[in-house]
Design a binder for these strands. Structure first.
Lengths: 148, 148
DNA sequence: CTAGGTGCAAAAGGTTTGCGGTTAA
DNA sequence: TTAACCGCAAACCTTTTGCACCTAG
């Protein structure tokens, strides 16, 4: 009922791509799966390297194309660190990010489902449909090292 | 109220640069003043163009160098839009940003001085010394256009 | 059949670096 | 004097684009 490389591509994904006007190609679903396989924030190149393991013929351009389609389909988010290449995140749950100023790492911070209140009142006219908090400071590891 | 080129370079700036181990060179103070002159979020190239008006011999590399020194001295912040070049912001008051998904513009959102509370509890070990909220949605102009 | 997608290679940004010359402590 | 800094140009890295071929609808 399923092949080695073509395991069922998750209806949700197919549907979302379709709703945004994209075909659910093997490359796109594979890039998505690659991203889901690990809970970190890889760069496009990192994704490319990982995706090639199971799909050696995929190209960098296609990875960019796929990531773009996935972002537009709301299956993946962009995450910008302060420097360097754009990173991608397949965790679409409401969450925030913590950036360690020491080691440069980025960590997901879950948003409490209860309190996502209009913490800040926006000036009249602005219509926000989402927000994300970027914390900066020391991650547990670096904080521990620093203390000594 | 502005001078030709060498108006006194603001003690605060000199001191901050110095405290971070940078000399307060004419280029650095000029780039800083350039950034302060307008309340937007220019790219490095934009800064370069503006800075050249009053300092024609300044180079792109120097602008990058200066911006870097200013960021490290806490006189300027990096602002990343979703796409494109890094942008810079000389508004160091506690504030957040609103990104318009329609026109791509970025707007400063003042943080109420009263409530800058730890609205989200971080997992144990994380030591945040600051945070910034990125709102996304429609700016007043685009919201108005959309309504029609 | 044909619009959309892929892979490749080349191009286009954006940022950094190496280096000779200059300047401030 | 000398370490820091400047301007220039080349290098580098990330992302986009043009194009020939391919494939699903």
């Amino acid at each position: 009922m399923s092949a080695v490389k073509d395991s069922k591509p998750d209806l949700e994904v197919v549907e979302r791509l379709d709703r945004s006007g994209f075909r659910a190609t093997p490359q796109r679903t594979h890039v998505y799966k690659t991203l889901r396989a690990k809970r970190d924030h890889p760069t496009a190149e990192e994704v490319f390297i990982r995706a090639k393991k199971d799909m050696p013929e995929i190209s960098m351009a296609t990875v960019y194309n796929c990531l773009d389609a996935l972002v537009q389909s709301n299956l993946v988010r962009l995450v910008n660190h302060d420097k360097g290449a754009t990173r991608y995140c397949s965790n679409m749950m409401k969450h925030h990010h913590f950036y360690c100023v020491e080691c440069g790492g980025a960590f997901d911070i879950d948003a409490p489902s209860s309190v996502h209140e209009p913490l800040i009142k926006l000036p009249t006219g602005f219509k926000a449909d989402r927000y994300e908090i970027a914390f900066r400071g020391l991650c547990p590891d670096c904080a521990a090292k620093k203390k000594r």
